[in-house]
Simulated assay, not measured.
Amino acid sequence: MLSWPRPSLQLLLLLIQPAASSLLPGNATDGVQEVIVAAILPQTNTSYAWAWPRVGPALQAALDRINSDPWLLPGLSLRLVYRNSEDRDGLCSHSMAPLAAVDLHMDHEPWVFLGPGCTYSSSHVARFTAHWDVPMVTAGAQAWGFWEHGTVTNTGPTHKKLGQFAARVQDAFGWRHRAVLLYTRDTGDDGPCFFAAEGLYNVLLDRNVSTYHHQLHDVDYRALVQDIRDNGRVVYACCSRDVFRTLLVQFWRDGVDLKDYVFFFINLFADGLEDRGPVRPWFRGDSEDRAARLAFRSVKVLTYYQPPTPQYLQFTEDLKRNAKKMFNFTITDSVYNMIAGGFYDGLMMFSQALNETLSQQRPGPGPVPRPRGDTLTHKMWNRIFPGE
């Protein structure tokens, strides 16, 4: 039986100066008890869907809504503190994020942590939040293994859900065997395609669907085509659009009858699908366009679905306006707004869980004590929040 290779997650404790906390303005009300919520997110690298300039405006909107509702958390007011999870190169750091969590815990004793988003940094922070019994809410942390962390509530799309979707597709068409997983994993990144493939692998394996997985590195496309022909007919690929297009063109050059295959291209965050004009992932304006276009007839693109509701459209417009106002940041790729919406919903869900928990308690005189973290977490699980 194949076992999925798991990278080592080792916490590196570095001697560094702690980054300064930042507070969002106007998020506290005089005369009531403050409840601290702590966010740990990338500060400047907006290529991350959960970067602070993208998510901060959504959290501010949720905070304003919660604190302006006299019935939601009577006698309490949420206040948001923030720390950066990036290293000096602007990348998600599995050492900076947990150190930021420790500083926030010691300085502010937050009742909930929001973020991180990246897999490795989230994994390390989740270990601390479990030790402190403090809920951790994120719309990132999409990897398979986060179901093992008892304090984590994920309000965004996860790779486990991706695997369950693939299993439903396999069942619907009677594809019981011979699935192929292709993925890239660049040195120094957060391994998004590796973990996407891991979610597929584990769910399909659990459904007794035999799989062949192949990491795309220094690709020999002709040999890869032969490997796929030998090992499957249903192919799930998570890689760059250029790598995927080149693979399909090689299939066409080799004269393979693509009607016998189906390709699912896992397009994380809808890369390239929001360009102006018609959606043509095969098009490059070169001599291989015709072959690529014909080969792409066997391709299904899997990506996030954005709700077309008026409420969601208004949320995205407000988010763009507030990102420009608060961070002088212009949002152009609106699919990332789903992640920001996940953080918004997460803070709202936490507030509702806190409301329900406190309503079941009879606190004595003095400040309201922080409820048990596992109680709050379990009240957030398996619930649907309609969002905006």
Rank of each mutant, 00 (worst) to 15 (best):
D218H: 07
V243S: 10
F263I: 00
D260W: 07
D242Q: 15
F251E: 01
R241L: 13
D260S: 12
D254T: 08
D220T: 12
D227P: 03
F265G: 01
F251V: 03
V225N: 11
D254M: 14
R241P: 05
D254K: 11
N231D: 00
Y221D: 03
F265E: 01
A223W: 15
L268I: 04
K259P: 07
C239V: 07
F269D: 15
L258M: 15
D220M: 12
H217N: 09
L224E: 02
K259L: 13
C238W: 13
I266W: 05
G232E: 08
R241C: 00
F251L: 00
D220R: 05
F251Q: 05
C238V: 12
T246N: 03
Y236G: 06
R222I: 00
R233E: 11
V256E: 03
L247V: 00
Q226R: 14
D254Q: 11
W252M: 11
Q250S: 13
D230V: 03
A223E: 14
F244K: 09
D257V: 08
L247D: 01
D227E: 15
R233Q: 14
A237N: 05
A223F: 15
Q226F: 06
A270G: 13
Q250F: 08
G232V: 11
G232W: 15
D227N: 10
D230I: 05
C238L: 13
D257P: 02
R233N: 12
L268S: 01
V243C: 12
H217T: 14
V249W: 04
V225H: 13
Y221P: 01
D260E: 10
V225M: 06
V234R: 09
Q250A: 08
D260K: 07
G272T: 14
F269H: 13
D271R: 14
D254C: 11
T246V: 00
D230A: 15
I228K: 03
V262M: 00
F269I: 14
D230S: 09
L248D: 05
V249D: 04
R245T: 05
G272V: 15
R245V: 05
F251C: 04
L247C: 06
V235S: 04
I266H: 11
L268V: 11
V243P: 02
F263S: 00
D260Q: 08
L268Y: 02
V262T: 06
N267Q: 08
A237C: 12
D220P: 14
V262A: 03
F263C: 01
Y236F: 15
Y236A: 05
F244P: 01
R245D: 07
V234N: 03
N267K: 08
D220L: 10
S240Q: 07
Q226T: 13
F244T: 05
G255K: 13
R222W: 01
F251G: 02
C239N: 01
Y261W: 05
D218G: 13
L258D: 08
R229W: 09
L224Y: 11
C238P: 09
Y236P: 10
I228F: 04
A237W: 10
R253T: 14
